[in-house]
Every structure is written in structure tokens, then in C-alpha cells.
Design a protein around this nucleic acid. Structure first.
Lengths: 191, 191
DNA sequence: TAGCTTTCTTAACATAGGTCAATCTTTCCC
DNA sequence: GGGAAAGATTGACCTATGTTAAGAAAGCTA
């Protein structure tokens, strides 16, 4: 919880009351590798802040293939925001890739805080702006870079993740098959 | 300007002062087809609200190929947010695809309004959330749909745009060449 | 309306990446 | 430590999309 409070305070001044309330609605816990926190088709009533480990959100298409939308590592939030903001049941699944420490919050309660404590709005806006920009960049990369170039960028952006998760999750994030990723890796080590 | 005020008031109550200030920093004008409002490499100091017509933002890669990030139609905002939020010069170019009516705002002034009138924060947050979700959906679509399926979705999402802009801009938005799009269109009309 | 210019289509061929299947390697339990 | 399960690699072949080039159609504008 310290990390989260620090992250907020790095961005805006946080009143004692807001901090206490945030603490009162938080639930810190560790989750084992493989556990599923949100399941496609089910209601979404939680958002998660990761303090350690790695989780991912992914989409299962009509052929049963998985497509990774997001990897969440330390100090990242993760949930199914598509479901939350359109008030639908989950279109994504959120799963734990390594044993992780998370803080979970009830969606209604944590979003309610923005009304209770409007001082938090600039913090949330900064978060959203950062996410928005990173998604725009990812779309641009997807439009003009080869799979190998996208893999290089992935390694830069998530330098510690590669060693800890299976390659096929990375492939599904890059939009290629695990076989293609394997060939890209073979090519890289050859040079 | 009426459309913009209405759009804001549909979302939040807007004080007379805020409305007047917004008006005072606005500059409504029509821009001819082909004009470039933001150019890759130059500073970005304006954001634009479209009241009529169609603009696009695109990225020019190292081979000189253009990749369309966003089409802005009536009631959309457009600028180079990557540049604005990272305080760099433009990575995108914003160009006018049909004669359009826009309202332009100085970036500093309009973002400054969020500090002057914190009541506006929820409006901006709602905008960002909507954009964030639509980009997440676009990434998911890019990951699992064929070019033909993405084209169908494009036609649903921008039903009036297709007739007014060249196909190669649509192709560059979908991440394919104009020749591929032409083949997809030929296939569709054959069935 | 003629004659540019821009846009769209089509064809032949090339290539990145996908599919399927086999095998090898690593990890993890009992 | 041995054996199963999970993950990674490799090969042969396939397909969607890219490339290049040519020509047809559509739009402008004089």
C-alpha cells in the first residue's frame, strides 16, 4: 500500500482523509501463479494495483485463441476497463502470470472517490493521459513495424518480464504466433 | 461553438464564467481540403475541435509511408497528443481531408482551464476514458481480425467517411496497402 | 468538353508470417 | 531422480498481404 500512496503523492497532494478512505477500501493480498482474477463473460467489480509480480489481460477470440492486451507489472493498474466503462460483463480475462502481490479495490468505491475527493481528479487524468499515449504509440508501432522490431521494443519496455513468462504470451501481445516469435529469436541470436 | 458547449453541458454543468472563458480563447474557422494544421517535427501548440468535415492525424515512417492514427469527424477533437503530453515536437501530421469547420484552442490555455475550473475535470476524464477504451478495442481488433473484418468495422464506425475520402487513407488506417483494400472491396461486391 | 491529375483496380510475382506436426528442452512434481 | 507436463524450436508447406507495374475510371479545371 505504501507504493500506491507514494505514487499518488508524487503526483498530487493527498489529504489525510482521502488516504484513510483509500486504505479502508483496499485489500492487499498475494495471488498465486495461474489464478484468474477476472473471467471473460463474468461481471467486473474489481480493479487491481500490482505491487509485485506480473499479470496480464487478454481477449479470447471466436477460435479460442488468446490475444494479450496488457501486461501489468509493479506499480501498474489492471482490470477490464472496457467492461467497466461500458457497464457490461467482462470481455477480457485477467490472469496472474507469476506469484504476485496486488491491492484490490471495489470498482464503484474507488471511482466514487473521485466524486468524494475531487482533488484526485488530476491524478486520474494524468494516469489516463499516459495510458492513452502509450496505446496510440502501440497502434502506430503495429501499423508500421515488423514483428521483429515490435519484439525489440517489447524487450525495451518490459526488460524484466521476458525471463519470467512463457514466450507465447509475448507472441500473443505482439500479434504473432509463438512459432514466429521463436524464429525471430533464433534470427537474433544468430547475428 | 454551440455544438461544443452543448457537448460539454450534456456531460457536466458549466458555469457562465467557464463558458465565457472558453469562448474567449476559441477561434472558429473553416479550413480548406488539404491544409495541414500540425506538421511532423514542428511544435504543437493547438488542439482542434471539429464541427464539420473530416481531418486525420498520421505518422510518416522512415520509408516515407503514411499511417493514419485517427480520423476526426463532427464533434471530435484532434491534435498530436503524443507531442503535447511528452512536451516534444510533433510526431504526427494533422491534415484536413475535406473542407472543414473547426474551433482551435491554444493548448496551454485550454489545459489551463482544468486548473482554473476544476468542475471541468469530470468532463475531460470522460473524454479520456472513452478514447482509452476505443484504442483498446482497436488494438484487440488489430490482433485478431482479418483486414476484411477490420474494414467492415471501419464502415460501421465511420459510415459517412468512406464516400468523402480516398481509399488509401482508409487502407493506411487499417494497416494494409491500398491494393489490398481494393481487393477486399472487389471481393465484397462479388458476393 | 478536352486533357490533366488523382484515385482505383487488376495482374504477376514476392514475402512475412501462419499452420501443422514432429522433436527437443526445461520445469516441476511425486 | 524419473517421468509427465509445459514450453520452445524446427521444418515443410500454405495463405494473406505486400510490391511493382500497368491501365482504367473518376474528378477537376481550363
Amino acid at each position: 500500500m505504501k507504493e500506491l500512496i507514494k505514487k499518488i503523492k508524487d503526483s498530487i497532494p493527498l489529504s489525510k482523509e482521502a488516504e484513510e478512505y483509500l486504505f479502508s477500501i483496499s485489500n492487499e493480498r498475494t495471488v498465486p501463479k495461474g489464478s484468474v482474477l477476472i473471467r471473460q463473460g463474468r461481471p467486473v467489480d474489481m480493479v487491481f494495483f500490482v505491487t509485485d509480480g506480473c499479470l496480464r489481460s487478454f481477449f479470447i477470440d471466436r477460435h479460442g485463441k488468446e490475444h494479450t492486451l496488457h501486461f501489468a507489472i509493479r506499480n501498474n493498474w489492471i482490470s477490464d476497463y472496457i467492461a467497466i466503462h461500458s457497464n457490461e460483463s467482462a470481455t477480457l480475462t485477467v490472469e496472474c502470470l507469476t506469484e504476485s502481490s496486488i491491492i484490490e479495490f471495489d470498482t464503484e468505491k474507488i471511482y466514487g472517490m473521485l466524486t468524494m475527493f475531487p482533488e484526485l481528479e488530476p491524478f486520474q487524468r494524468a494516469n489516463l493521459e499516459r495510458l492513452f499515449i502509450s496505446l496510440q504509440k502501440r497502434i502506430i508501432n503495429q501499423l508500421h513495424l515488423s514483428a521483429a522490431e515490435r519484439y525489440d521494443l517489447f524487450l525495451e519496455e518490459y526488460p524484466d518480464v521476458e525471463q519470467h513468462i512463457p514466450n507465447y504470451h509475448i507472441a500473443s501481445y505482439l500479434g504473432i504466433t509463438q512459432e514466429s516469435l521463436s524464429r525471430i529469436r533464433a534470427n537474433k541470436s544468430r547475428t
